[in-house]
């Protein structure tokens, strides 16, 4: 269905995306992850023909998206969250408007929208003005509009942004049930790792426009670090620290010497205890010692360290 082949996008000297390749078939739920500014939205926009690109190609059923917009009949998208619909209309008016915009036939989309209203839990709000709905229901309305013409490929850019847990679960349930039908493929960008973990079979992580990981979610989780330990000591103790500390850690960590000490990325919170114990036993008093939970952006960046370490 969708094939992104060595897609690159440059703005002058700045490279937004470089040589990115992946595919999405019917039944696939693929996550496109990365820190802010990594090139996710540029990629989604290019798939939607909202961005021109210089090299590589994006094809839909073997035909380049550069040459015709007809394939958009089979594509739905939630871009920029729930702002992406007309807040002056009701959910059902929005859905019908966008379905017609995609050239869908009324006899097809009307019963389908009725099904979607139940599936998304929007039945009781179908005639309310979208502006008056909660953020969650606005987001569901955006999804309703993207699905209204029954597209084969659905592109969701940050679909969980601003949603509570309950709504995220409902969204997840809806997307799963669609994916199970095998008629729809999904490409999702999100910062919500739990959402991605439960929903996506395949993950592509990009950093500064380059693919740094492509594989299944469990492999990603193995490689993605959750914590960071920073130890700084006096200059005379530093060689001892660099020599001894690595002995107290399991293999699946990333360790980097710094000017004054050592930085360690690791996964299990209690893995730090032997090092603390060793410091105490040897009466080494660090000038600085901190343990931080990594933000998802920083966690993605550790993948670069990981790939070097592996």
């Amino acid at each position: 269905m969708l094939s992104v082949n060595q897609f690159s996008k440059h703005y002058g000297d700045f490279t937004a995306v470089s040589d990115l390749s992946f595919t999405v078939e019917k039944g696939d739920v693929v996550a496109l992850l990365g820190a802010n500014g990594s090139g996710k939205t540029t990629t989604i926009n290019a798939i939607c023909r909202l961005v021109d690109f210089e090299s590589g190609d994006i094809t839909f059923d073997g035909k380049s998206v550069k040459h015709s917009a007809k394939y958009l009949k089979r594509v739905g998208a939630v871009l920029g969250g729930c702002r992406n619909i007309n807040w002056r209309l009701s959910p059902i008016q929005n859905a019908e408007y966008f379905a017609r915009l995609h050239n869908a036939k009324q006899r097809d989309f009307r019963p389908f929208i009725q099904q979607l209203l139940d599936l998304l839990g929007l039945r009781e709000y179908q005639h309310h003005i979208t502006r008056t709905l909660s953020t969650g229901n606005k987001q569901k309305t955006a999804l309703l509009c993207a699905l209204a013409h029954n597209p084969n490929l659905l592109l969701l850019d940050e679909p969980t942004l601003g949603l509570d847990m309950e709504t995220v679960e409902a969204l997840e349930h809806t997307l799963k049930s669609f994916a199970q039908q095998g008629e729809h493929g999904f490409l999702i960008t999100s910062h919500d790792m739990h959402f991605i973990d439960r929903l996506c079979q395949r993950v592509i992580v990009i950093d500064k426009g380059k693919e740094i990981f492509s594989g299944d979610i469990s492999t990603l989780k193995d490689q993605l670090y959750r914590y960071e330990l920073n130890i700084e000591v006096a200059a005379d103790v530093l060689p001892l620290l660099l020599k001894e500390v690595p002995k107290h850690w399991p293999s699946n960590i990333a360790m980097t010497p710094t000017d004054k000490g050592i930085q360690i990325f690791y996964n299990l919170p209690d893995a730090v205890f032997p090092t603390i114990q060793w410091l105490n036993d040897n009466a080494i008093r660090p000038s600085h010692l901190s343990i931080n939970e990594l933000t998802i952006e920083n966690a993605y960046r550790t993948l670069l360290t990981t790939s070097k370490a592996h």
């Binding site: 939607c48 023909r49 917009a69 958009l72 998208a77 992406n84 007309n86 995609h102």
Partner: peptide, 18 residues
């Protein structure tokens, strides 16, 4: 301003036709 301009660009008919 309302934020759904790009949805109009997603019409297979093309934005100028819309």
């Amino acid at each position: 301003q309302r934020g759904y301009l790009e949805q109009l660009f997603l019409s297979p008919a093309g934005f100028p036709t819309v």
